[in-house]
Simulated scan of single mutants.
Amino acid sequence: MKKTLILFLLALTTITAQAQMQAPALGIRAGANYSGFSGDNADNLDRMFGFHAGITSQFYLTSDNFFAIQPELLFSTKGAESKDDNTKWKISYLDVPVLARVNAGPLYFEGGPQASFRVGGDIEVGGNNVVDDLDMFKRTSFGYAAGIGLATPLGVSVGVRYNGDISKLYDDDSVSDARNNVFMLTLAYMFGGSR
């Protein structure tokens, strides 16, 4: 895991170092998650609501700010629940997406890889916490994110994003090949307005 994290941070540093020396735009992001599991045995599970919140930035690669690299650090709650709402898998992650962003007027498009680091969670049955130790789930997972949204000159933007894991949810290959997937409604504010 340490090697993977070091390689991921090295790639992020290389990308941002190649950006023009224009100061990056910094901001905050928060919103709602609608998460579920995909893969084996996921058909009998429902999605559940959660949230995400964290910091975002944009490193502009063109002088007109048309193209940018957008790294983020987001706390994100994910999981799924049984169809009778009796059992809930609640897992918390630190998501680190590194997105390519195209600013086409007020409309923007984004997409790229994402690393997720499990930081907590539990499994509830009948409203009672039955499992606190989630070591059965992988600590690190990799996936992708893609989205579209609207940005205002005041620095406020609203968008929708989908992110899905390529990595399996469980460490034990004999259990299931379930993976996280999340629809996000996200609101961001870039300090200093848009450029």
Rank of each mutant, 00 (worst) to 15 (best):
K90F: 03
I15S: 03
N163C: 11
T140F: 14
D133G: 12
D84G: 01
D40I: 06
G192R: 02
L74H: 01
Y144F: 11
V98C: 05
R139C: 14
V102Y: 14
Y162H: 11
L45Y: 11
G192Y: 02
G143W: 00
G126S: 08
S167N: 01
Q114E: 12
T56C: 10
P106G: 14
K83S: 07
R118S: 04
V160H: 02
N181L: 11
A100Q: 06
D84N: 03
A11M: 08
N65W: 07
S174R: 13
V182I: 12
A11Q: 01
I166M: 10
F191C: 09
K88S: 10
V125F: 07
A17V: 08
L7Y: 15
P113H: 06
G126A: 05
Y170N: 08
R161S: 00
Q70A: 07
A17Q: 09
G121T: 02
I166C: 14
N180L: 06
Q70N: 07
D46C: 05
N86S: 14
P153D: 11
D46E: 09
A19Y: 02
A115N: 00
L26G: 01
K88L: 11
V160R: 05
F109C: 00
F51H: 06
R101M: 11
N41Q: 11
Y144D: 04
L5G: 10
S63L: 07
L94V: 11
F191V: 07
T186N: 15
G164P: 03
D171N: 15
D171C: 08
V96L: 10
R47S: 13
N44A: 07
L134D: 14
L150H: 01
W89C: 02
F109S: 02
A178S: 05
T14L: 15
T77P: 03
K168V: 04
F137M: 12
S76P: 01
S157T: 00
G193D: 10
K138E: 05
D46M: 14
P113W: 06
K168F: 04
A104I: 02
Q20P: 03
Y93G: 02
L73V: 15
S167V: 01
D132E: 13
S57C: 04
V130M: 04
I148T: 07
G126W: 11
R47F: 12
T4C: 15
G127R: 15
V98M: 10
Q22V: 09
M136Q: 13
S63H: 12
F66M: 09
L150I: 08
F66I: 04
G149K: 00
G36T: 09
D165S: 10
L10S: 12
N128A: 15
